[in-house]
């Protein structure tokens, strides 16, 4: 790849990978969930830089917001260990994850040095460039799919989250 002037994308990408790494390595589950939200936020910035503002808003509000709420709720409902136990447990877990930063670093160096020539297609500009038109006129089936999927999710919530009757 070209080593040109340091562009802003490189910094965002660096932060994106670092937050993802932190998410995976974080000591407590709660911090991992917050790390995930941060990763989403970094992705949002990246999407904004790539001229995809609408999808970026969705990513920010839904992934960084809603999914974090779901995760943090689930974690706080299921956190059974005391802090001392977590500490003990995490030492053992971190030993399994210790190679990961080095793997990522090596991968990064490797791809930095190795030149890969991808045969990219010739660009044909899109006929319809308005997201609203694409989503609401051309991809209606996906919208119907979204509604059905949300319906399935609603049944999932009523079935799975229902209180346990004295078992």
């Amino acid at each position: 790849m070209r080593l040109g002037n340091l562009e802003i994308e490189i910094i965002i990408a660096l932060f994106l990978v670092l937050t993802a790494l932190w998410t995976v390595m974080a000591r407590s589950l709660l911090r991992a969930a917050i790390g995930l939200a941060l990763t989403s936020a970094m992705l949002t910035v990246m999407m904004y830089k790539l001229n995809a503002p609408l999808a970026a808003v969705f990513e920010l509000s839904v992934c960084s917001g809603l999914i974090s709420v779901i995760f943090i709720t689930t974690i706080s409902l299921t956190q059974p260990l005391t802090w001392a136990e977590i500490y003990e447990h995490e030492r053992e877990r971190l030993s399994r994850f210790r190679p990961l930063p080095f793997i990522i670093l090596l991968l990064g160096l490797f791809f930095w040095l190795v030149k890969v020539d991808l045969a990219l297609p010739t660009v044909v500009a899109e006929k319809v460039t308005d997201v609203r038109v694409v989503l609401w006129s051309l991809r209606q089936l996906d919208l119907v799919g979204q509604i059905i999927c949300l319906l399935a999710g609603a049944f999932g919530v009523t079935i799975l989250f229902k209180a346990w009757r004295g078992k």
Partner: peptide, 20 residues
């Protein structure tokens, strides 16, 4: 590929599926 409108609408659908 200069198909950002398509890509964005795919990502929006994908995010909804992901949440469910």
């Amino acid at each position: 590929s200069q198909h950002l409108a398509l890509a964005q609408s795919l990502v929006i659908t994908l995010i909804v599926m992901e949440v469910v």
